[in-house]
Design a protein around this nucleic acid. Structure first.
Lengths: 191, 191, 191, 191
DNA sequence: GATGAATGAGCATTCATTCAT
DNA sequence: TATGAATGAATGCTCATTCAT
């Protein structure tokens, strides 16, 4: 019988990979990174534990991959060129996008935030992310500078904190949290 | 040797208990709840593992105790009677106190927040807390109602989210976060 | 495409086989039998794991094959007919050949010796070899008998032990071990 | 009830430790280091796997401990001061002792030799030992120098090889190998 | 009260081997 | 013939918890 073509193999791998990542994300979100067991992830992905290790070298790599994937999605969605000066429209788009992404990906976001508070897992990942976040924070500071705030960096920090708080509540109680109103308040306050 | 009096025993117990809780808090904060080992906690408290189990029935109980302790401290500090109608001064005090407590107890607070995102540990504790939080949220809603906001409950939620975000950033970057300015912004916005 | 002839297929098989054995030998020698993984062997032989199992039924068979191959090479090189009475020249040739084979095939020999000390793998192989070694040991005993040693079998054992020791050191430190001098000493002592 | 005294704890630990090392030695010798499982060692020592890790941090540490213990025993038994010039009597004692130790500790010695051929385990240990072996090799070289051999270092190497070969055969076939005769031959040849 | 030896279930990870294509 | 995805049993190791003293 003819062996599988390279393309067939690639398709299998791509699909399986996604399957595993999806399973991992859900199990991580449901139980937390440490409590989640590889067995459970494999079971949820309907594959054997061994196969998981054919795709990812460790439980930690699974985590890193998930976190970096959403991070890239965010950075891309923000669509901010390094050094770019924000217009009001762009700023407003940023607010909407930044909050919506948490609303639309509650699992991923929950995982992401929970990791921020787990001193043992994140340092490596955070270190990798920081350089990419810097320009975004700089753009924000400059935007606030343009608006004649006396301490634009402080404003940027407060703005970020408030958005993070809103994201948090969106995740923890998506049913009841008044997202739209919250966005409007942020925009009225900072834009 | 003269036998110890009951009172002496009690003193020893009280002190030991505090010793253990303090050790646990630090180890939890440094390594995260799951990564922290009972051995390490015992070592840090300079007692044996066995003795720890004489004071707390499990690692989880240690956690619960810590969380509930800070929770009680918060509720007490808020000093809000059920059904009480907030004055502006009281509201402002609430803002200050709520943020300061995170600033002054970063370890405890970090632990507290991280647990909020660990679905496997907290549910029990959260369930226990909820009834105590309700009246506080009600008081806030009513305060916002008095100020003629059209949806005071939504305001209360947004306010809470923003304060939580600020607390978070205070913990994660205590050096650089502009706490005072943030408080002022909150007060200007909501008081 | 013209179908391959039977002969062509055979050639491919022979070559592949050698390829695999060579890869296995090197990986075994570099990492030890147990540590070596089939994946690595396949990779080194530039074939798939599956194909390897088409040629050898197991990792252990790979090992057996390698060991038996060198064993046959040795027996052939010794060129000793069963029952043959050794001349001095033949004995000297035996010494040279026996030591040179280790010098010239350090990988194979190292593997061979290491297995001698791994009780879990060799018994089967050793059992298979023993009958072939017997006549060689007998010839040696008789040679020593002719030379009026009072216990020729003991001499044969001691001689073998010393040669083995020399082989060992040749393998472990080929740069510095004085092979020629060692051979001469053996010959002076026993021939 | 009175807690155990420190001395009692020490006794328990000393005994258990020996128990575990003994079990490990036998299992290693019977199955080889890699094939031996920690479970089996624990079972043979009649303790739980967990307890083993209370005494040794890893399977590898078990191995190191065993190897270093016998190594120290050997060095002590050789009783050779660094820089010491060997007398004939001392040299003869060395031969006897060096071979007897293998005869008397076949398990340990077998383990020791097998490791010499396992490229993945020993490097670290060997590196640690080398400095201690150097002076011993130097003393031997000097002894052979005194006897007017033209290349005393070569003689020392050949001597070592032969002794190693004899040790090897003593271990592999203790019943039949003529130890006494072998010693005598070595002494006649080199002393 | 106090100790730390002891347990055992659980976990991440590896790897020889099989099998559909 | 040839591939590499897939399996699953086994392994080293950890750690909350118990218990004899």
């Amino acid at each position: 019988m003819a062996p599988r073509t390279t393309k067939q193999f690639e398709e299998i791998r791509t699909e399986r990979r996604a399957q595993i990542l999806d399973a991992a994300l859900h199990v991580f979100a449901e139980e937390g990174y440490h409590t989640a067991s590889v067995s459970k992830i494999a079971k949820r992905a309907s594959i054997s534990k061994g196969l998981m290790y054919n795709y990812f070298t460790s439980k930690e790599e699974l985590l890193k991959t998930i976190v970096l994937e959403i991070f890239e999605e965010v950075m891309e969605g923000m669509d901010m060129k390094p050094g770019e000066v924000l217009t009001k429209e762009k700023f407003i788009h940023t607010v909407h996008f930044g909050i919506d992404i948490a609303v639309n990906n509650p699992h991923r976001w929950k995982l992401y935030v929970s990791l921020t508070f787990q001193p043992d897992v994140m340092p490596v990942i955070m270190a990798e992310m920081m350089p990419h976040i810097q320009p975004y924070m700089k753009s924000l500071s400059e935007y606030f500078g343009k608006k004649n705030y006396d301490d634009p960096i402080a404003m940027m920090r407060i703005y970020s904190a408030m958005v993070d708080g809103i994201q948090m509540h969106c995740i923890l109680d998506p049913e009841n949290f008044p997202v739209q109103k919250a966005k409007q308040l942020i925009i009225d306050q900072f834009a």
